[in-house]
Design a protein around this nucleic acid. Structure first.
Lengths: 239, 239
DNA sequence: AGCGCCATCTAACAAATGTTAATGCCCGCC
DNA sequence: GGCGGGCATTAACATTTGTTAGATGGCGCT
């Protein structure tokens, strides 16, 4: 059941059986969320952290004028609110972008891990650090990449992250986001989002239909995006 | 000497004398950097993490077309590359935006802290989590706030962060950034950056001259920015 | 004092992006 | 099979943002 989490963490460093067991013990119960449901509400103080077993979720903030901005997309194997373990108060919401199967890890058990399992603690810490690295890459994309490059970068990132947890199908992956939702990822209007997707299609590097993205020319897509996966820390080494 | 760091960490939870001592022991040597110098270069694998004692630093990435984007601003008391302790490879550079006095913490000593001092480990982890929270707020600002609101938000954030480490002077603080540098923070052209600063000035909420920002109307500034400091985790509670 | 450099600021125009509105299509529901 | 709603797409137009170029002014250096 926790296979995605193991794959995710083991991506960065070896994960012992004892550590896997500790993680399994930290999990209390599981739950399903329907598309559009809030998995964690903004302003709350959760006492557990949520692991995505299956589905796509997203962190978001809403402004007074009704504008919404997603600050991350979370794939299977991701802890969506591990940061709340120490941050305590959620300053943003987390919503299911597709039917989501999740599992909850009690903060008391996570705390016990920090007291007794230093290496596993570092791996969990690292997980949140990769989160931060992704945030930084998004900031760069929003500030200094062309919109087409931004979208291309997102496709590259999602493909690699989904590949790690075995959710890709050849050069395709399922992306259950409407163009309006995608617009709230890139910070664009829906109309312009449509233009940008069209532009990327026209270049011929991706096929995008029925919520399925197929990468036709990985090399050129990467080039357009200036995608360098270093920030995802995909090398396995002692941490 | 480490007063800023103590203030920074103690902002979130009590810091014991023993923990302060552990931090002090982790520090190996100090150094000064001139404005514009790289404190940490992109692509390197540092064996120590850098603490800002005094000055302003920034994380940045450079794109092929020469565009630069800052992904964070770092004030005294901030570890600029604590994440490199586990991320290992720097995927971005860190540059001194003003003369900087810094101190280095050996990764081996940080590792020892994770093995022996769980509470202090959580505080350091938390420090990187706040980093992430700031990143998310920047993403929201870049994607969905007006440029004026974005700038106002940045001013609010910097003011609060500088206040914590006692670098404000009444309602003023020193901000040693040229408009071109600020443009690389917000992701704008220099010309438009100038327009946006002008707009904020015209509203009358700030005075901005000689690299000194004075907040004339904190309440209204906060309103324009929709600034809610929750994400900075300024409440002191057990972590 | 004179020079040159750099940062700020402005103007005029070009390009990117947002807004409003309309069309067509698919798909679930009655 | 018809109906209605959501989504993708496009058009026309408004607004924001970028580009290029130049003017101004402070400030260190000689």
């Amino acid at each position: 059941m926790l296979e995605s989490l193991y794959l995710n963490l083991a991506q960065h460093d070896a994960l012992s059986d004892a550590e896997k067991a500790l993680l399994a013990e930290a999990m209390t119960f599981e739950r399903h969320f329907a598309t559009g449901q809030d998995i964690v509400a903004s302003g709350t103080r959760p006492t557990y952290s949520t692991l995505i077993l299956d589905g796509l979720a997203a962190r978001y903030k809403v402004l007074e004028n009704g504008g919404r901005q997603f600050t991350s997309l979370q794939v299977p194997g991701d802890f969506v609110d591990l940061h709340a373990f120490l941050l305590k108060t959620m300053d943003h919401g987390i919503v299911a972008m597709s039917p989501c199967h999740v599992m909850f890890a009690d903060h008391s058990r996570l705390r016990a891990i920090t007291e007794e399992a230093p290496h596993l603690t570092r791996l969990l810490w690292l997980d949140t650090l990769v989160d931060g690295a992704i945030h930084r890459e998004w900031i760069v994309a929003m500030g200094r990449r062309s919109k087409t490059a931004h979208l291309a970068h997102l496709v590259c990132e999602l493909f690699v992250r989904l590949q790690v947890v075995q959710r890709t199908n050849g050069m395709s992956f399922h992306l259950p986001l409407s163009q309006a939702e995608l617009a709230d990822v890139l910070g664009l209007s829906v109309v312009h989002m449509n233009r940008v997707i069209g532009a990327l299609r026209k270049v011929g590097v991706v096929n995008w239909a029925n919520h399925t993205v197929t990468i036709l020319d990985w090399h050129r897509l990467q080039e357009i995006a200036e995608f360098d996966p270093t920030y995802l820390s995909l090398t396995r080494e002692p941490r």
